[in-house]
Design a protein around this nucleic acid. Structure first.
Lengths: 200, 200, 200, 200
DNA sequence: CATGAATGAGCCTTCATTCAT
DNA sequence: CATGAATGAAGGCTCATTCAT
C-alpha cells in the first residue's frame, strides 16, 4: 500500500514497534500485566499480527519493557559502584532499587519468578543480569565483612523478589514493603538470640 | 459422625463431600490450584452441581482444604507453646511449619495473599488465625529480648508468605527455601554492619 | 418425627402447602414468575422435594396461584351478571378485570398463552373457565346488538392477553394499558372509515 | 462487494458473516430465537469466537436479522405512501405488514418489547424506525378523519406487537391473527354501543 | 410424608496465537 | 511487512426435577 523502497518500510516498522512499546508501557503501568494483547494492539493502532511480529508472544513484550527498566537499573548500579558510601549502604540501596524494578508493573514478580535463571529466555537473561549486579555489590560487602559470607546474589535476588511480591498484597500499606525489606536486612532475631535458632 | 439411625441422609452427602475433598486434595497437590472445577467434579464422580452445592466456588474449596491443614498447624502451635525449647527456637520452628503450610499446594500463596486480612472470607479467617498464632510466639520471643520489638505477627506472616512464594520458583532447589528463610531470620548484614545500612 | 396418627400428618401437609402458596404468591408478586423453585422452597422452609410433592412442577404451582385469583374473577363475573348496567358496560368492565388478572404476576401472560385451550392442564382449565365467562358476557352484549356478532370469547380473551402482555413492556406507562385496551374496544378507525379498511 | 484486488481480506470475513446470518436465519425461523449461540456457530462451521467477533452478543445477531427485514418493511412503507389507495386502507395494510415483521421469528416479540423505545440499542433503533413509519401513515389517516385523533404511532405499534405475540400462541390458527387484528381496527363495539362503554 | 442431595445438560464468553489475504 | 479474521479450548455456574434416605 505504501510502496516505499525498503528503508522507509523499515522505519515504519520501527515506528510501530515504538508505539507498541509506549502503549504497552502505559497499559501495564496502569492496569498491571493482565491486559489482553488485543487491547494493546488496538490502542497502538496496529493489528494483533503486527504486535506478534515484533514480539512473538506476551512474554517477549514484557521482557522488552523490563529490559528498558533494566537499563535504568544498570545506571543505578554504576553510580552505586562508584559511590563513596560504604559497601553495606550501597548494597542496601541497590536492593531497594531492585525491588522497585521488580514492581515496575503490577504482576511482574510472577513472570520474573518464572524466568528466573532461564538464561535462554529474553526475560531470564535480564534476571541473570540483575543477579550478577547484585552479586557484585554483595561480594564487595562480604569482602569487608559487612554481609554474611555464605550468601549469594541469587539468594538476595529471590528473597527480594518474594518481598516485592508480598508487598503487592491487596491490603498492604506502603510501610509493608519497608518492613519486609528491613526483615531481610536484619532478620527478626536480636543479637542476643543469634545462634539459638535457625541458621547454619 | 456417620452414625446409626434416622438422623442422617447425610451419609451420602458426606461421602460425596469427602470424595470431592480427597480428589481436590490430590489434584491440587499434583497440579496446583489451577485445576478446573469440572475436572474435580468429574473425577470425584459427581456432577458440577454437586460440587457447587458443597463448595459454592473455587475459593470455598481451597479454603476447606487449607482449613484442614490449619488444623495440623494448630497442633504444631500447641506443641511448640508447651515445648521446653527457648522462645527463639520455637518461633523459628513455627515459621518453618507455617511456610510448609503456605506451600501445601502449588499456587496457594496467591489466594493467601489475596485473602490476607479479610476476616470475612473463609480463607481469610484462616489467615487471621495463623497470624494470631504467629503473634503469640513472636511476642513471647520479644518478651525475652530474642526478637526485635517492632515486629508484628503480620509482618512475619507476610514476609514468610513471600518467602514461600519465592521458594516455589520453577528452578528453585530445596535449599532455596531454607536460604531465604534464613535471610528472614538473620538478615544479610553481619553484626559489624548494623546501623550502617537499612531500616530502623 | 412428629408421630401423630394420620390426621395430624394431613394437617401438617396442609399447613406446608398453605405456606408454600403464601410464599410463592409473595415472591411471584414481587419478582415475577422467574423465581427459582428452590428459592420458594427455601423461603417456605421446606425442601424442594416437598414443594414438588404438592406441585408436580412449576406450572402446577403457577396454576394453583392463578386459580386462586380466578376465584376473585368469578365473583366479579357474578356481580357483573347481576349488575343493573348495560351489557356493553358489563363486558367492558369484565375485560378490564380480566386483564388485571392476566397481569397478577409479572410474566404470567407467557404461561397463559402457552396453556391456552389446553383443557387438560390445570392452568389451561382455568383459561377455559375465564374464556367461558367472557363468552357469556359477550353473547349478552351481542344479543343486544352492542358487540359485533362475529366475535367469540376466545377472540376477546386472546386479544386482551396480548394487550396485557404488551402493557408490561419495560417503558410502558400506566396509560399504555388503557390506550391499548381502548383500541381493542373501539378500534383505531373512526365511523366514517368503516368498511374502507380491514374487516370481514 | 466481493471485488478484485487488494482492498479486501474481507472476502472471507464477509463469507463467514453471511454464512452465520444464513444459518441463524434458518434456525431462528425453524426453532425460534432460543437457539444456543454455540449451535449456530457450529452449524455455520465457525468457532464461537468468530461468531462473537461478528456479533458481540445474541441481541446483536437478532438485531442484524431484524434489520434485514426492516429493509423489506421500508419498501412496503414507500409503496404504501405512494399507493393510490385511501389512507385508511394504507394504514391497515401497513399494520398487517408490521405484524408479519414482528413475527418473523418465533419469540421475536419478546426482544422487540424489551428494546421498545431504547434508541441506543441496535434493535431499539429499528423499533423506533418502524414506529415512525407507523406514525406517518397514521397521521395521514387522521388528517382525513379516518383514524381516531388521539392515537399515536407508539400506541398502534405496541398494540400490534401484543397482537402479534398473542397470535403466536401454540394453538392459535391462522385466523387468530386476523381476528385479533380486526379487533384492533374496529373494536368489539358496534356503533350503537359507542359511548356506553370504554374509553375517553 | 419430608428432606435435601444429586443430577448434568446447557449457556455465554474470553483470549493467546496463527495464518490467509 | 501489516492486517485482522479465525480459531477453539477452557471455564465457571444455574436450575428444574428426580430419588435415595
Amino acid at each position: 500500500m505504501a510502496g516505499g523502497r525498503g528503508i522507509s518500510t523499515r522505519s515504519d516498522a520501527a515506528k510501530n514497534r515504538a508505539r507498541i512499546v509506549a502503549i504497552a508501557e502505559k497499559f501495564f503501568t496502569e492496569n498491571g500485566l493482565d491486559v489482553p494483547m488485543d487491547t494493546i494492539a488496538k490502542q497502538a493502532g496496529v493489528g494483533p499480527g503486527t504486535l506478534y511480529r515484533h514480539f512473538p508472544n506476551r512474554g517477549a513484550l514484557i521482557a522488552a519493557l523490563v529490559e528498558d527498566r533494566v537499563g535504568d537499573l544498570q545506571k543505578t548500579h554504576r553510580s552505586l559502584v562508584e559511590s563513596p558510601q560504604g559497601p553495606a549502604a550501597r548494597l542496601d540501596q541497590w536492593l531497594t532499587a531492585m525491588r522497585a524494578w521488580m514492581t515496575s508493573y503490577d504482576g511482574l514478580p510472577g513472570p520474573l519468578r518464572q524466568a528466573w535463571e532461564e538464561e535462554s529466555t529474553p526475560l531470564g537473561a535480564n534476571c541473570v543480569n540483575v543477579i550478577e549486579m547484585t552479586d557484585e555489590l554483595l561480594r564487595n560487602a562480604q569482602a569487608h565483612g559487612l554481609a554474611r559470607a555464605e550468601l549469594t546474589g541469587r539468594d538476595l535476588y529471590l528473597a527480594n523478589l518474594g518481598a516485592a511480591w508480598a508487598a503487592s498484597a491487596p491490603s498492604a500499606t506502603k510501610t509493608t514493603g519497608e518492613v519486609v525489606a528491613n526483615l531481610l536486612t536484619r532478620g527478626w532475631q536480636t543479637e542476643s538470640s543469634a545462634g539459638v535458632a535457625g541458621g547454619d
